[in-house]
Amino acid sequence: MSESTMYSLKYPIGEFEKPAQITAEHISQWIEDIERFPIRIKELTHDLSTEQLKWPYRPRGWTIKQVVHHCADSHMNSLMRFKLALTEELPAIRPYFEDRWAELEDSLDDDLSYTQMLLEGLHYRWVKLLKSLTADDLKREFVHPEHGQQFSLAENIGIYAWHCNHHTAHVKQALELKGES
Rank of each mutant, 00 (worst) to 15 (best):
L122E: 13
L118F: 12
A72T: 01
K128P: 04
E141T: 14
E141R: 10
Y96H: 06
L175Y: 08
M1T: 13
D111H: 09
M117R: 13
F151L: 14
V127D: 06
A161T: 02
E32W: 02
K54T: 13
I41A: 12
L53I: 04
S152P: 12
T115H: 04
W55H: 12
L112K: 05
S74Q: 02
G179T: 08
T50Q: 11
V143D: 00
G14H: 06
K83S: 06
I157S: 02
H163W: 00
S113P: 02
H163C: 01
K42T: 12
A72F: 08
P56S: 11
F142L: 09
S152N: 07
L84S: 13
P56M: 05
A169I: 07
K128C: 10
G61C: 05
H26L: 06
L79N: 01
W30T: 03
A102V: 02
I34R: 05
E146W: 02
S152W: 08
S107L: 04
L133E: 00
H166C: 03
E180N: 07
W101D: 04
A154I: 03
E103Q: 09
E88P: 01
G158A: 02
H163Q: 03
N77L: 01
T168D: 10
D110M: 11
T63F: 01
L9M: 15
T23M: 10
D106G: 11
P12N: 08
K54H: 15
E176A: 15
W62N: 00
R94V: 14
D73Y: 06
Q149I: 13
Q52M: 11
L119D: 11
E15C: 09
T87G: 12
W126C: 01
Q29D: 06
A20M: 14
K65E: 00
L79G: 00
D110C: 11
E176S: 15
L9D: 02
I13E: 11
E89C: 04
I93F: 07
K172Y: 00
F82I: 10
E25H: 11
H70S: 03
C71W: 00
I34P: 01
L112I: 08
K172I: 11
Y96P: 05
I13M: 07
S181G: 09
F97T: 09
C71M: 12
H166A: 05
L129K: 02
A20E: 15
Y124K: 14
E120Y: 10
S8E: 13
